[in-house]
């Protein structure tokens, strides 16, 4: 229960920063050598083929360097996807939590990001999130995150939110 509480604290902090579009601050929840991926999802006859593999296409396939670049871009007043800014709401539900060894946690959760823009543009992004957390200086940080968005064809004109 203690671990679950700690993870939920981390996720709550993330939600506050994501909803405010404070992406540079949000990245402090990650380790310097982090990987952030969102593999594409396809319509396939077999469940095992639905999510693209590690050598296949993703919506995000990032390191800390490229995530910082994205964060700096989104802060620009020429970044039309966020200017005027989106209204964002996040919901995260922890499903499973495993501790493979001391100092590591594997967490799966459901994520919903609700994004509205302009007058009536509305997008829902539902996803399964798989995190590997590691302990650094007494704090949990995200070392690896993979999110599988539940759409084969995105309904939106772009994807500029993080899950």
């Amino acid at each position: 229960m203690q671990r679950r509480f700690e993870v939920e604290e981390l996720y709550r902090r993330e939600i506050v920063l994501l909803q405010a579009g404070r992406y540079s601050d949000w990245l402090e929840a990650f380790t310097e050598d982090m990987r952030y991926r969102a593999p594409v999802v396809r319509v396939a006859d077999h469940r095992s083929e639905v999510v693209a593999g590690p050598n296949e296409l993703a919506y995000y396939d990032e390191t800390m360097d490229t995530m910082r670049l994205r964060a700096r871009k989104l802060a620009s007043t020429l970044a039309w996807t966020e200017y005027p800014p989106s209204r964002l709401r996040y919901f995260v539900q922890v499903l499973e939590l495993e501790e493979p060894c001391d100092g590591l946690l594997d967490v799966t959760s459901n994520v919903l990001c609700y994004q509205t823009r302009h007058d009536d543009s509305e997008h829902f992004f539902f996803a399964l999130r798989r995190d590997r957390l590691c302990q650094q200086d007494g704090e949990w940080k995200v070392a690896e995150r993979s999110v599988e968005i539940d759409r084969s064809r995105l309904p939106s004109e772009n994807l500029s939110v993080f899950l």
Partner: peptide, 18 residues
């Protein structure tokens, strides 16, 4: 992935304008 596709740093702005 960084530059193009719906989440690409370039292409995400095209969709917004088109």
């Amino acid at each position: 992935v960084l530059v193009f596709g719906p989440s690409g740093m370039f292409e995400q702005d095209d969709g917004e304008i088109w």
